[in-house]
Amino acid sequence: MGIQVELRVAGEQIQRLPDPAGGFFDAAGDFDRLVFHESSTLGLLGRLDLHGETRFGASQMQKLIADVELLLTLAKVGVEYRGLMRLRSMAEHCAEQHGELVFIGD
């Protein structure tokens, strides 16, 4: 299954976010290969618990977005790239709404 990311505001999962590619989405994923491969060069994403939950708050979103920007340069076109674009969108919404991103590992 891999890592799945949810945006939570006031403890509730946000079920509908605008997808950068069009439409809507409620979670991000499909970028596991990059996180595993690049973990030593990443800031926040390098600290993920791959088998449990990791939470990052609104104040950490700029660092997370920097990690995502790095991974976007390495991502394969398709689901991997789309998953990172969704993660970046979630991070931006998280910062605006003072929420938290919850990374759920296998």
Rank of each mutant, 00 (worst) to 15 (best):
G52D: 07
D106G: 05
D106F: 09
E6K: 12
A58K: 07
A95H: 10
L44K: 03
F25S: 10
A10T: 04
I14H: 08
G52Y: 05
D26G: 10
Q62A: 15
Y81L: 08
A75C: 06
H98Q: 15
A58R: 09
F103L: 10
S89W: 02
P20N: 03
D49N: 14
F56Q: 06
M85N: 15
A58G: 02
L87T: 05
R8L: 13
V102H: 01
G83W: 01
D67W: 07
L50D: 02
A91V: 06
S40G: 01
M85E: 14
Q60M: 12
F56M: 15
S40W: 02
F56T: 08
A28L: 01
R86S: 08
I104P: 00
F25Q: 11
D106K: 06
L70P: 01
L34V: 07
F36C: 08
G105Q: 00
R47T: 15
T73D: 09
M1F: 04
H37T: 13
C94P: 00
H51E: 14
H37F: 08
V9S: 04
G29R: 11
H37N: 12
I3D: 01
I3P: 00
D30T: 02
F56K: 06
A27K: 10
L64H: 01
A10H: 13
L71W: 01
P18G: 12
D106M: 10
R88Y: 01
S89M: 15
I104L: 14
D106P: 12
M61F: 12
V77H: 02
V5A: 13
E80D: 06
A95V: 02
D19I: 11
E92M: 14
M61E: 08
V68S: 02
M90D: 08
E80H: 07
G52E: 09
F31R: 05
R33M: 04
V77M: 00
I3V: 14
I65Y: 00
A58Y: 15
D32G: 04
L101W: 06
M85S: 11
G105D: 07
R47P: 00
L71M: 13
R55E: 13
R88W: 00
H98V: 06
L34C: 04
L48A: 08
D32Q: 04
G2E: 05
F36K: 15
G57A: 08
V102A: 09
A66F: 06
E38L: 08
Q13I: 10
E96F: 09
S59P: 03
F24L: 11
P20G: 03
Q15A: 11
F36H: 14
E6V: 11
E92L: 12
G57D: 08
M1I: 07
